[in-house]
Design a protein around this nucleic acid. Structure first.
Length: 474
DNA sequence: TGAAATGTTGGGGCG
DNA sequence: ACGCCCCAACATTTC
């Protein structure tokens, strides 16, 4: 038996069901097809992750084949070229990923070539979870409560023994895909911060277990503390399997070597990841339009100047600007700060959540269609189980609450580094003497607030009630 | 996984 | 000693 292993969002050898199945049958031909329309930061990550996978496979003498084009055509061609009699892959759950899988499946069936798909990205398949009425859950808490009752993921699979094929099918060169930025090379900050690939992923997980998980529940909200797992980009590309996380934590809970509350809090965040894929699977239109139809009439303003100030981290609100600059420089933003900047864009600036989603898509190394969609709609108030629209984050209070000492703001907005923490989150309220002493010149080296918080809040609430009125007539 | 407005309570200053 | 006011602190309601 000779199998093509079609890698997509599962760039790992450990606990890779499709790979293990194929390896047990005989020879394998690993294939990766150039993905259209990723964001810039994701392409950088993808390049590094593929390099890592390529090296890991090469240790067994197996060559990863790179090709560009339509997946059906490529796979059909490769079947003919290699005489493969089987094609396997792990399922993905985005609308385009599902469509590709279906097309490949029927093309192979038509040609009487064996094919099989596996679960590898989620703890539980989206179509396996329904509420008592047989409908998809629309609220996270009952969804996750139900999952926890029925979840019994299998133990992770070992890295399989791989047998290379003798013949060498043609492959494009990864380096020639041009995924790494060159002119200009903006990837330095990202490069310093991350180690993409399966090894980087497992090391990050070990570090998190050793150093942070027991403070997770409290510490995860403070952006100056490195208490989050930083696993998100590794999970997006499938460099680590959620089953590994689940079993590692459950083993430790059983042994008493991890605090159960903290471990369960982390697992519920994994639950949110499952939930966002689940929602996208059952409601694929939500990448384009509001989950909650009431928001179809929302009077968005979409002011380009405000959007640009937000993107560049020049809003005059230190916590917002710190977050946006962290994103730009490292491809990542702390979760707490993501909520604050997203609330600011949609509510203070009245800019449609899709504009924020597009920016995150291009700049985040962990950009993920399901999480991005679900989270932006959640914060905008239009999503499933969403934050109510009137829940408007106050960027000053949030800064004072979660970055009291200002470690986070001072790191990413160095022009405020000398400012007393009393005024750090509202520099416009400091006296001219204090500003001068801190070498802050508002309007020159740091922006005035682009909107007034109180006014913007009232405007957002007015827009909300206007939208409620309008939706009555639809 | 909010914030602001409004309501309530209780202690202390003060005439 | 008493009642009144002020207001901080906390609780509840509203957006």
């Amino acid at each position: 038996m000779k199998s093509i292993v079609w890698f997509r969002e599962d760039l790992r050898l450990l606990d890779n069901a499709a790979l293990t199945f194929a390896a047990a049958q005989g020879d394998i031909i690993p294939l990766f097809i150039y993905p259209e329309s990723l964001g810039g930061a994701s392409y950088w990550w993808l390049h590094k992750s593929l390099e890592s996978l390529q090296l890991d496979l090469a240790k067994s003498g197996v060559e990863l084949i790179f090709r560009t084009g339509d997946c059906v055509q490529i796979i059909e061609d490769l079947v003919v070229e290699t005489n493969a009699n089987n094609v396997v892959w792990n399922r993905v759950y985005s609308p385009s990923g599902i469509a590709d899988g279906k097309r490949v499946k029927s093309a192979l069936n038509a040609k009487k070539v064996g094919q099989r798909s596996f679960s590898g990205q989620l703890l539980i398949e989206p179509d396996a979870v329904k509420n008592k009425q047989g409908l998809p859950f629309k609220v996270f808490t009952p969804f996750w409560r139900h999952c926890k009752q029925v979840l019994a993921p299998e133990r992770p699979l070992d890295v399989p023994e791989l047998t290379p094929i003798i013949e060498k099918p043609a492959s494009e060169k990864l380096a020639e895909w041009g995924l790494i930025p060159s002119t200009p090379d903006w990837s330095q900050g990202i490069n310093d911060r991350w180690q993409p690939g399966e090894l980087g992923a497992s090391e990050r997980w070990e570090t998190f277990l050793d150093e942070s998980i027991d403070e997770y529940q409290q510490g995860r909200d403070f952006p100056s503390k490195p208490v989050t797992s930083y696993l998100s980009p590794h999970l997006v590309f499938g460099e680590i399997s959620p089953r590994v996380l689940w079993h590692d934590l459950h083993d430790r809970i059983a042994l008493g070597t991890v605090d159960a509350d903290n471990a369960n809090k982390f697992l519920s965040e994994i639950g949110w990841r499952e939930y966002s894929r689940y929602l996208l699977f059952h409601f694929p239109h939500i990448t384009e339009s509001s989950f909650n139809k009431k928001f179809e009439c929302f009077p968005w303003q979409n002011n380009d100047q405000l959007l640009q100030a937000w993107q560049q981290g020049n809003t005059g609100y230190p916590i917002i600007d710190a977050g946006m600059r962290e994103l730009w420089q490292t491809g990542y933003m702390h979760n707490r700060v993501r909520m604050i900047v997203a609330s600011f864009l949609t509510k203070h600036c009245l800019i449609h959540w899709s504009k924020g989603m597009d920016w995150f898509w291009d700049t985040l190394v962990d950009a993920d269609i399901a999480n991005n969609t679900a989270s932006w709609q959640w914060i905008a108030g239009s999503g499933a189980d969403a934050a109510p629209y009137f829940r408007i984050f106050n960027p000053i209070l949030q800064g004072e609450k979660f970055d009291k000492e200002g470690g986070y703001v001072k790191k990413w907005v160095p022009e405020l580094a000398l400012l007393d923490s009393k005024y750090l989150h509202k520099p416009w309220e400091a006296s001219p003497e204090i500003l001068e002493q801190a070498e802050v010149e508002l309007g020159l080296n740091y922006s005035y607030p682009i909107v007034d918080h109180k006014e913007a809040r009232l405007r957002a609430l007015a827009a909300y009630s206007q939208s409620k009125e309008l939706s009555k007539f639809n």
